[in-house]
Write a protein that binds this DNA or RNA. Structure first.
Length: 653
RNA sequence: GGACCCGUGGUGUAGCGGCCCAACAUGCCAGCCUGUCACGCUGGAGAUCGCCGGUUCGAAUCCGGUCGGGUCCGCCA
């Protein structure tokens, strides 16, 4: 790793600038100094403030005059002998200050406190036999200080910097993020993220991709997420939007003939926050020309494998090539379009077994066109009443009216509150159909298909968590594709794109892009268009949606038909997507791409469940930056210049 | 917009109607100590229990509100 900041200039007043005379013992060793020529494992890190980093000290440098700079990680004051552990990004090196060898250095060392920034000069020596520290990479050596300089004093920090295991309130960490990032766990994660981005760049460049930056001030579109808005001073009354993604721009670059584009793109969406969502985030955005769905997926898969191997070489892949599920299959088997395939617990359609059971909930659900799904929670047959109550409450939170459970006893008999309705025989058949064995707990939800599937999908994840399933060290990538092109918009009485309006339709479904009536201005929920599948794909990792993309519609006639289904004329869309529609009239290549969430990827690769842990300066759930104090009021003159005045709703009491 | 959890010396926790002007660990400060590495030993300082109001003879403790942080639903690819 190269040092990230090369802009630091030694100041005239600091000791390293050689403006202060060296003590004789230092001057003596300087005359034949060769330390400046040391090439270390950390790379070219030699500066006027140091010859080695605190992670470089090794027996091979023993006997050399060495200058180190860093933070005081810990001071052990034994009286006439003081040990300073000096720390930087690269490691920790022990500095010994012996009053009888260097009284001046000892005087300074006794005033030094944790987190002071110091420079230590002296001779690097191998440690006395028996005093080596095997738990430290630099533990074979120590710096015998001839001189200690305090480069910067430090207040006692609000939380321990030198304890990587300390649990600190996140609010406090965010308020003093610069100190949090000084701690080892944050550094480790940020370095991993840097390696991730570096690997991404390397792989893309090796495959002929061109990295192109796109603007941050673009045009607002009402589709999708809420835009962050930036008022224009030069054109009062008009606004820019911050990009939710460079979607249109990268398609324009395909029209430009760039052929293969990528970008580590900052994106902004003004929506509520979650553990995996921040208002500003980073995407790997890419687009390719003259490609099919398979071409894009093949490249992205290969890229993901190479990148994962480089960033996390110890992690094993669950399955390669990555399994591909259709949207339909994913929902039927996992109850979600982002399945965690590290464990089984698959959903089973129990409609056939419970049909005509005489149990009203099941019968009425089936009669009403709903479905009955179940899953077998392996080994949870002994679940307590309160555990089952918790699962029931959990299911209700996601829209279930109730949760039916059947515990399978060791002798195969079934214990269940609905046992008397189903009868012993049917209960056993239901358990068998759900894949349950003695000792298991079968959970059943009957509802509208999407509700039953979603609830059981969530239960599946919850049960897996309770059972400790899902090896965190495994990378379980999979694809989900063949999403429905449209969803019925109840309020508007028309079809709406599920992804983005430029996603292409799978070739064999092209003929479905019509209304039942044949009149595109009279759409209906039962139109063939509802069955059309898009050339759309999501990449999923360990149950998290890493990102998704599609092969785009580039032919004007198809686009026109698709827009018509969504109640838009081509002319009407020109206002929203004018640039892209114009561009398509000048020769657009077939193209497609994907966008992957870098924050989520980095989090998963570093075993985190929250993307804040892999972002240097994240926001709180209320969108605040606790360190900078943003957002904040602004000088009225700044608003006036933009022709703006706030008109806030009165607070209700 | 909504549901739930949390808020006690610098930090992390305990205390959950009177025994508490609050305990423990660590950190901090001072003294002693020449081979420590979570150094050790001795002593000391440090919290009106997020804030406001209520209940009560009595509130860190119960209730309401509010602020801040978190998890989730809605929202969001």
């Amino acid at each position: 790793m190269r040092p990230m900041d090369t802009s630091v200039e030694p100041s005239q007043t600091t000791p390293a600038a050689d403006s202060t005379p060296d003590p004789p013992e230092v001057a003596a060793v300087r005359q034949h100094t060769s330390a400046a020529a040391i090439r270390t494992a950390s790379g070219p890190v030699q500066t006027s403030f140091r010859d080695l980093t605190c992670g470089d000290a090794r027996p091979e440098y023993a006997g050399r005059p060495v200058k180190l700079s860093g933070w005081v990680n810990r001071r052990r004051d034994l009286g006439n002998l003081i040990f300073l552990d000096v720390r930087d990004r690269y490691g920790v090196t022990q500095v010994v200050v012996d009053v009888s060898e260097s009284p001046d250095a000892h005087t300074v060392a006794s005033t030094v406190r944790n987190e002071f920034v110091v420079q230590a000069q002296g001779t690097l020596t191998t440690r006395l036999p028996g005093t080596e520290n095997a738990s430290l990479p630099t533990g074979q050596v120590e710096l015998r200080a001839a001189r200690i300089d305090v480069l910067s004093t430090a207040r006692n920090p609000p939380f321990p910097i030198n304890d990587p295991d300390a649990e600190i309130a996140e609010e406090l960490r965010l308020r003093h993020r610069y100190l949090d990032i000084r701690r080892e766990p944050m550094q480790r994660r940020l370095f991993a993220r840097s390696r991730l981005v570096q690997a991404i760049r390397d792989v893309h460049h090796a495959h002929g991709f061109v990295e192109i930056e796109t603007p941050m001030l673009i045009k607002s579109t009402p589709e999708g997420a809420r835009d962050f808005i930036v008022p224009s001073r030069l054109q009062p009354g008009n606004v820019y939007a911050l990009p939710q993604s460079p979607q249109q721009l990268k398609q324009l670059l395909m029209v430009s003939g760039i052929d293969r584009y990528f970008q580590i793109a900052r994106c902004m969406r003004d929506e509520d926050l979650r553990g995996d969502r921040q208002p500003e985030f980073t995407q790997l955005d890419l687009e390719m020309s003259f490609v099919s769905e398979g071409d894009v997926m093949a490249f992205v898969e290969q890229m993901a494998i190479e990148v994962s191997r480089r960033v996390a070489p110890a992690r094993l892949f669950q399955e390669m090539p990555f399994p591909r599920f259709t949207y339909r299959d994913a929902l039927d088997r996992y109850g979600t379009d982002k399945p965690d395939i590290r464990y089984g617990l698959e959903l089973r359609d129990l409609g056939g077994v419970v049909e005509g059971s005489g149990f009203r909930v099941f019968d009425e659900t089936l009669a009403g066109g709903g479905r009955v799904f179940g899953l077998a929670a392996l080994g949870m047959g002994g679940a307590s009443r309160s555990e089952i109550d918790e699962l029931t409450a959990f299911a209700k939170r996601f829209g279930a009216k109730g949760l039916v459970w059947l515990a399978v006893e060791q002798d195969g008999s079934v214990r269940s509150p609905v046992g008397k309705f189903l009868g012993e025989d049917r209960a056993r058949r239901l358990v068998a159909a759900a894949g349950g064995s003695p000792g298991d707990l079968v959970l059943v939800v009957a509802d509208r298909d999407v509700v039953a599937q979603e609830v059981l999908g969530r239960l599946r994840v919850e049960v897996a968590a309770r059972l400790g399933l899902g090896d965190a060290t495994v990378l379980a990538y999979c694809w989900v594709h063949r999403f429905p092109m449209y969803q019925w918009d109840e309020a508007a009485g028309r079809w709406d794109a599920t992804h983005n309006p430029f996603s292409g339709v799978v070739p064999e479904d092209e003929e479905l892009l019509v209304t039942a009536s044949g009149d595109p201005t009279r759409p209906d929920r039962s139109d063939p268009a509802g069955r059309a599948r898009a050339m759309q794909y999501d990449l999923v990792l360990n149950g998290w949606e890493l990102g998704g993309g599609s092969v785009r519609i580039h032919q004007r006639d198809l686009l026109e038909r698709s827009f018509a289904l969504m109640g838009h004329s081509l002319e009407g869309m020109r206002d929203k997507f004018g640039g892209l529609l114009d561009a398509f009239e000048y020769g657009a290549p077939p193209h497609g791409g994907i966008a992957l969430g870098i924050d989520r990827w980095a989090a998963l690769l570093t075993f985190q469940t929250n993307i804040r842990e892999v972002m240097a300066f994240p926001k709180t759930q209320s969108g605040a930056d606790l360190m900078l104090g943003a957002p904040s009021p602004v000088d009225p003159r700044q608003l006036a210049e933009l022709g703006l005045r706030f008109e806030l709703p009165k607070r209700e009491r």
